[in-house]
Design a protein around this nucleic acid. Structure first.
Length: 287
DNA sequence: AAGCCGTGGTA
DNA sequence: TTACCAAGGCT
């Protein structure tokens, strides 16, 4: 094993957090659900929803048996509610195509709704112990700094996967720990804004530190548009209303949520197109 | 393939 | 307060 992998794995085994999806016996379905929820939502916000979700729907077939709107409602305020829709779709696909068992093959996983490069590998590795590189935003940042000597990662690219693959220990178990450890390191120590280099287990090996912490000069990932006043905010307000409603939500009720009518119309049209809302004679409802 | 998609925490 | 950031994926 490389010195980097040795240091990361030692550190992770001694100080890694005790998270639900790291408990022995945690199911592959649980891993899949947790990864969906963790897409752009932080660990602390995910945990309570994850546990409630798995208690209610302990297997893919349980979720597949209820209407998608139930998933969207249970998703609550986790954000990006399309993920709830896709998770429900994935549950249906797993039930139909894989007899209710979460597949272990990356190609099978990536063919499911809402599962891409990251999530497919995370499930194959963390749920099934297969040996693959897993690359997320944390991993990319750690590699950018420790290996490439840059202050930050460039926008995601295919190169990231081969970078991680080159560092991956040959042994399946060590590779799995390394994947988790790199993410943990990026989440707790080698963080985006103010990295805690003083307490970093790989400080001695870090190329960025060795180079004297040069500033980032490469291409930046574009900044997100402002949320306040955006269409996304309007969609969020409407979704909140749909989740809370017992019956249908009328146009009159929707009109009270936002003053800009054009924006309201765009939001509704978008939600209908996305399948997050359905139009009925009496108003809008969850699917 | 650049832009879009929620929500809350943090400095 | 504003702006950044968060275990991405889809079109």
């Amino acid at each position: 094993m490389s010195p980097l992998a040795t240091a990361v794995n030692d550190w992770f085994r001694s100080t890694g957090r005790d998270l639900p999806w790291r408990r022995p016996g945690f199911t592959a379905w649980g891993t899949l659900v947790s990864e969906f929820m963790l897409q752009q939502t932080s660990v602390n916000r995910v945990i309570p929803h994850l546990e409630a979700w798995l208690e209610r729907w302990p297997a893919p077939a349980d979720l597949a048996a209820v209407p998608p709107g139930e998933a969207v409602r249970a998703w609550a305020t986790l954000g990006y509610p399309r993920r709830a829709l896709w998770l429900h779709q994935a549950a249906v696909q797993i039930t139909e195509r894989h007899d209710g068992t979460v597949p272990a093959d990356i190609a099978d996983l990536i063919a499911l709704s809402g599962i891409g490069d990251y999530t497919s590998r995370a499930v194959a590795v963390f749920a099934y112990g297969e040996r693959h590189p897993v690359v997320d935003t944390n991993t990319r940042r750690v590699i950018a700094r420790a290996v490439h000597g840059r202050a930050d990662a460039a926008p995601p690219a295919k190169r990231d996967l081969s970078d991680m693959d080159a560092l991956l220990p040959a042994d399946d178990v060590e590779a799995r720990v390394f994947n988790a450890g790199m993410m943990e390191l990026g989440a707790l120590v080698c963080v985006a804004r103010t990295p805690r280099c003083d307490s970093c287990p790989v400080a001695d090996l870090c190329a960025w530190r060795a180079a004297g912490y040069p500033e980032y000069d490469g291409p930046r990932t574009p900044v997100q548009k402002k949320f306040a006043g955006s269409d996304r905010q309007v969609r969020g307000l409407i979704m909140r209303e749909l989740r809370a409603a017992h019956g249908a939500v009328t146009d009159a009720e929707i009109a009270t949520l936002w003053t800009d009518e054009a924006q309201l119309a765009r939001a509704i049209a978008g939600l209908l197109a996305d399948g997050l809302a359905v139009s009925t004679a009496s108003g809008y409802v969850l699917p």
